[in-house]
């Protein structure tokens, strides 16, 4: 059971929902929370556990072997990303720009550019009771988030049972990293705010998720602060609203300290219960 938690815009409460929902579900179920927002992983500020495993993550990039190179220049010509250039009698490689397409390496007539692993980030695996928490963090300067997201998902695939509930805290936006983070999910939860910005960014996210042909529902955060446009939109588009998390200054204060909120605010706990029931029902339907 894989559930991606996403939002068109940053700062709508995606991480707040992911961490609180994961902790709440883990009171009775086995849960894995995965932070796939590898550029800005923030879930770890709210979930503390024992570090059970850590590993370095690598991507494949070409490495220039001077002795083998005939300086023919084919490599810089085939690279669409300018990840390698020829400078006089030298070839320079920029691993951060490399997409790992292997074209330069495999089209090099003298095999002077073998693909070699280069570190792009770290994966950490924590455990606290029923809750496993896995986060990946991209090294500063790395521009490609997608390979790290994809490898993190492989790690989850390998180490957890199929029917364990898996929550993926996805990157914001509607571009490649979000698509990578949500494309294997059984269900997507879109988090939004009941405001014009929230609605605008939600509608972009909905277009993206529909393009991926995913089942999805909406959670409205800071409910009460804005207007009814998001609700009207969801009705019109026949999108289920899983929960309405009330606006609360106290929630913002708890969040600012890096604390979980659901135990302090009963109304929020109730909304998490709604989401939980929805998810468990989905799981049953999936097994049948």
């Amino acid at each position: 059971m894989k559930i991606a938690i996403a939002s068109g815009k940053g700062g709508t409460g995606k991480t707040t929902l992911s961490t609180n929902l994961a902790a709440y579900l883990a009171e009775h179920e086995e849960v894995v929370l995965v932070d796939l927002d590898v550029e800005e992983p923030n879930s770890g500020l709210f979930i503390k556990g024992d570090l059970v495993h850590t590993e370095e993550k690598f991507k494949m990039t070409p490495e220039w072997i001077e002795d083998k190179c005939s300086l023919c220049g084919i490599c810089q010509e085939v690279c669409n990303f300018h990840a390698l250039i020829q400078l006089g009698t030298q070839i320079m490689v920029f691993p951060e720009l490399c997409h790992g397409c292997y074209a330069c390496s495999e089209l090099c007539p003298t095999n002077a550019l073998p693909m070699t692993p280069k570190k792009m980030g770290n994966l950490k695996h924590f455990q606290i009771g029923n809750l496993s928490f896995v986060e990946s963090r991209l090294d500063i300067g790395e521009e490609q988030a997608v390979p790290l997201i994809s490898q993190t998902q492989k790690y989850i695939e390998k180490h957890f049972q199929k029917n364990t509930i898996k929550l993926f805290d996805s990157p914001p936006g509607t571009s490649c990293p979000v698509i990578e983070a949500t494309k294997d999910a059984n269900f997507v939860i879109l988090v939004t705010e009941p405001t014009p910005f929230g609605l605008h960014d939600l509608s972009l996210a909905v277009d993206t998720i529909r393009e991926l042909k995913k089942n999805f529902g909406v959670v409205i955060n800071r409910f009460g602060i804005g207007n009814n446009d998001v609700i009207d939109y969801c009705k019109k588009e026949k999108i289920p609203i899983l929960a309405k998390i009330p606006n609360s200054r106290k929630a913002a204060e708890l969040y600012s300290h890096g604390a979980l909120i659901y135990n302090e605010i009963p109304e929020i706990k109730q909304q998490l219960e709604n989401i939980k029931n929805y998810i468990l029902k989905l799981g049953e339907r999936g097994r049948r």
Binding site: V78, F81, H99, Y102, A103, L107, L212
Partner: peptide
């Protein structure tokens, strides 16, 4: 189109 990175390798070979 959602998976293609536009590296151009396929076109070349």
């Amino acid at each position: 189109p959602l998976s293609c990175e536009g590296c151009g390798y396929c076109a070349r070979i």
